[in-house]
Design a protein around this nucleic acid. Structure first.
Lengths: 154, 154
DNA sequence: TAAGATTAGGGGTATATGCCCCTATATGTC
DNA sequence: GACATATAGGGGCATATACCCCTAATCTTA
């Protein structure tokens, strides 16, 4: 930076603090995650983990790559997040026919865990829906989907 | 769990995958964070870091506790997030009059960094606003604020 | 004022997340 | 079939985030 910029003033700072989409979105993610985490505590699962188990439940035997795309997450981050689930025996990770691939499957134990978690998730979800209202929830989804697709490449 | 539950079926799984507020919110947070991060790369700051610098800019010399409350973040998580900023000399952390407290201040270098980052942030913000529209942005904010206040204790 | 309660942070532990670079495996082309 | 290219993951590195428990400092109250 060769140019001498005028130092960020209080008004600009306040504007950033109030209107930053990244800030509000991350803040909300932290809050909502804590909320779901707390609801899921009885089954000893984090929200992120339930999300993964559930996605694996849906996508059946699935490669890391495809799963990562489905949950919109970095491949290597996903792979790491799978480790605790693997260690607990909730999923199985094996080589596929294509030897480059690793195929992820839900185990019996994993399905049981997801089954136990479901009613707790429903309760959390219902509470949120209750507070935000059906419409609030719909617009929230619409907006956030907008954010996601906004930044998706390919 | 002594009760034998009926195993989570595909429809339930799909419902969870499609409607989970936690999932969509985290997904959006990841996406938007990557977007802002990329825009901020030229000044070698992450979005989270800019958010913190900016909050410190606004709140002046501020204790960890108060800052954590302002950004709605766990105290100890915040303290750790401050470390890289401290190491880079962008902030200063010292003891306050109350010896239990640590007081955080923006340094000259930190102010410069925030100043350089501001136009980049504006650009990112403008792009998002462009895609979502003024109204989309407003509803997004309303919804997310709802989520945050929904889960705030005290 | 001394004992008990409250408050601010620190450190341990575990997860979540992304980028970059490297290796192994496929695939496509001559 | 040999070589160039493309694809799937793994590992290093750095940050982000939360919970729990512990210590130090302050405040309250008997």
């Amino acid at each position: 930076m060769s140019l001498k910029l005028k130092a960020l003033d209080q008004n600009q700072a306040i504007e950033m603090g109030k209107s930053c989409v990244c800030f509000i979105t991350r803040k909300a993610a932290r809050c909502i995650t804590q909320f779901y985490d707390e609801m899921l505590r009885p089954v000893d699962l984090r929200s992120t983990q339930l999300i993964l188990l559930n996605s694996i439940r849906i996508l059946g035997p699935v490669s890391i790559k495809r799963l990562a795309k489905a949950v919109v997450m970095d491949r290597s981050a996903l792979a790491r997040n799978l480790k605790p689930l693997d260690k607990q025996g909730l999923i199985r990770i094996e080589s596929g026919e294509d030897l480059r691939e690793r195929v992820v499957t839900l185990t019996k134990l994993g399905l049981e865990k997801a089954t136990e978690a479901f009613p707790l998730w429903e309760k959390a979800q219902a509470e949120v829906q209750n507070k935000l209202g059906r419409e609030g929830l719909d617009t929230l989804f619409a907006s956030l989907s907008g954010v996601v697709s906004l930044t998706r490449k390919k």
